[in-house]
Simulated assay, not measured.
Amino acid sequence: METFRLDERLARDSALITKLGLCQLRLQNDRRWPWLVLVPQRNDKIELFELTPLDQTMLTFETNQVASALKELTGATKINVGALGNIVRQLHVHVIARNEGDPSWPGPIWGQGTAIPYSDNDRHDFMKKLAGAL
């Protein structure tokens, strides 16, 4: 079986929380928003429809599982889910907790300001809490 290759930008900008059935679950290193990324561990996939029907089902299940845990953990007003891939082509799904009054509410988060990295302790604590919520 071929070794999964993670896009270097996803690797640089996020930290691995855990591996689910299909996806790597990663924390985006920007503490302005609780921002998770699901990356299906399938090489050379760009679009959702390129996944097998079983993988599409697994991705939907894992996205819903992660979104629900994130909402419960953060008490967010809204959970945003999106698969854009205009810059990073490797298939990945963003799951972002949003609240009224956050730095870009109610607009999109992309292209807004400069990322504020987590401290090592804050990143570790958030990842531990999320893993527990899953």
Rank of each mutant, 00 (worst) to 15 (best):
D102H: 08
R123C: 00
L73G: 07
R9M: 04
T52K: 05
Q65I: 05
D55T: 05
W105Q: 02
A76G: 03
K129S: 14
V88R: 03
N64Q: 15
P53Y: 08
E47W: 05
V39D: 05
G21Q: 14
E2H: 10
P34T: 06
T114I: 12
R89T: 11
D55P: 02
G107V: 00
T63Y: 02
K129Y: 02
F49H: 15
L134N: 10
A67N: 00
T60P: 00
D122Q: 12
E2D: 15
T77P: 00
L130T: 05
F49Q: 13
F4G: 09
S14N: 12
L36H: 05
L91R: 06
T63I: 04
Y118G: 09
W105H: 07
C23Q: 09
L10F: 11
R12H: 15
G113Y: 13
G111F: 10
L59N: 04
L70M: 12
D44F: 07
R98N: 06
V66C: 03
R89D: 11
V95Q: 04
N99Q: 11
F4Q: 11
F61C: 07
R12E: 15
N80G: 02
G107N: 14
F61D: 13
A131P: 07
I96Y: 04
Q90D: 06
R12M: 13
V66E: 10
V37Q: 11
A15K: 12
R32C: 07
D122M: 06
E8W: 09
I96R: 09
V88M: 08
W33F: 10
P108K: 09
M1C: 10
Q41W: 04
P103R: 07
M1S: 15
L48N: 09
M127C: 14
E62L: 04
G132L: 08
E62I: 01
K129A: 14
E62T: 06
R42C: 02
E47C: 05
